[in-house]
Amino acid sequence: MEFEVRHLRVLCAIADTGSLRQAARRLGVSQPALTTQLQRIERSVGAALFSRERTGCRPTLLGRAVLSRARPLVDGMSTLVEAALAEAEAARSGGPRLRIGSTASRVIGGWLRRLRVRLPDADISLRVDVSARELLRTVAAGRLDVAFVHEVEGCPLTVPEGLCQRVLLEREPQFISLSRDHPAAARPVVDLDDLAGDRWMVDPSVDGEWDGVRRVLGAAGLDPPVLHGDYLTAASLVVLGEAVAPCQPTSGPREDMAIRPLRGDPLAVRLLLVSRPGWDTAAVYAELEAAYREAAQRAAAYHQWLLRHRSPLVAALP
């Protein structure tokens, strides 16, 4: 079998996610199909490129050597394709372009709306990815202009050399979502001990998420059962009382779910806007900040949290 760029993308996706399931999700294929493809690649090489462990897939020594050569090729090809598409689009539209990326956030909709008003002639595109690290690599490769990402406390991101960054919020607390009839939902603030008997649901594909939750639970002396899955599934289980899950404080109110702060705010993230060097982010940052304030104002529990903690954002909120 001759190696093609698509084969190298498979290897990079598996290494980046550490999981065949998550790599398949990123590549948009089924896990059995991806497993078969990896087996074919390894047969053609004549040795294993990944070791299958209980906690996921890890590159072997040979795998690391192959990946060290594969990444520049994959990034180079992606950059070439992106540049060609961008040039073609710019020629058709005749206007400036703005390629933004973001991890999942309640702020994205308002940010896009504000940017389209402020930059009416710009061709604005959006890429959403669960992986902050992948978005940073994409900015570094020149395939995005800016990226809005969150960094889980205790799990620092490595920002590629040369990229510029601005901190939107140094410490955003993560709240907890639970069913309306959960005993702790009657309280304005929830203690971790109140959730000791609950299943916790965490999305392991979100960089640092599981490590951050595990660190906080361990520090509290708790070892609850943990389910791994995406947060769309988590929401349905939370509503039914089958699990609790961390959530962004800007999460909107729901009649079938309670969103509460955790006492002492043990879970937190840092919010960053990262951009290519020499790129003027003034307008993009200003609209992101305004969109964040709007989202914070709509979330009553978070608004109250900001007031209690005398956040600088409060000055912009009624």
Rank of each mutant, 00 (worst) to 15 (best):
E255I: 08
L192I: 03
C155H: 15
V139G: 05
V238Y: 01
G197S: 01
P120N: 07
A282Y: 07
L169Y: 11
R293D: 06
T103K: 10
R9D: 03
P188M: 11
L227D: 10
E53G: 07
D145N: 13
T55M: 14
L8S: 08
V130S: 13
R310W: 04
R171P: 01
A290I: 08
V213D: 01
D16Q: 12
G110H: 14
L267N: 02
V146A: 04
L237K: 13
P277L: 10
E172N: 05
R26I: 05
V81W: 04
R133Y: 12
R260F: 04
I41F: 10
P266A: 01
R40S: 01
A219G: 00
L217M: 01
L288A: 15
D121I: 06
V269C: 02
L34C: 05
S205C: 06
G212K: 08
R25N: 04
G229K: 02
A122I: 06
A65G: 08
D203S: 07
S105D: 13
L262N: 05
S311A: 06
P277R: 11
A220L: 07
Q39M: 08
V10Q: 15
G229F: 02
R215P: 00
E294Q: 13
V216Y: 01
G46Q: 06
H309L: 04
L195D: 00
A141V: 11
G18M: 08
R116K: 15
A132R: 15
Y292A: 04
A282I: 06
G208A: 04
W279K: 02
A300L: 15
E82V: 12
L126D: 06
S78R: 13
D223S: 14
E153Y: 00
D230T: 07
G28K: 09
A147L: 08
I176P: 04
I41V: 08
R113V: 03
A315P: 00
C57I: 02
V128Y: 04
V5H: 08
S30E: 11
I100T: 10
Y302S: 05
A140H: 13
R54E: 13
V274W: 02
E209S: 11
L144N: 09
T103N: 06
S311H: 08
A219T: 02
A299M: 09
V128F: 03
Q248H: 10
V107G: 07
P312G: 02
P173L: 04
A268W: 03
G154D: 09
T281K: 00
P246F: 00
W200G: 01
S102N: 14
W200N: 05
E89N: 14
D198R: 06
L62N: 07
G208C: 06
L168K: 07
V213W: 02
P204L: 07
S236T: 13
G212D: 03
I124A: 02
D207S: 06
L288C: 12
G56M: 11
F148R: 14
A268R: 07
L112K: 13
A290Y: 11
L227M: 13
L135C: 13
V81E: 10
S30G: 12
L20K: 09
T55L: 15
P253V: 03
R58T: 10
L169C: 13
E255D: 12
I108Q: 12
I100M: 12
V74T: 10
L115V: 11
G197T: 02
R308L: 09
L267R: 03
L85V: 11
A91S: 15
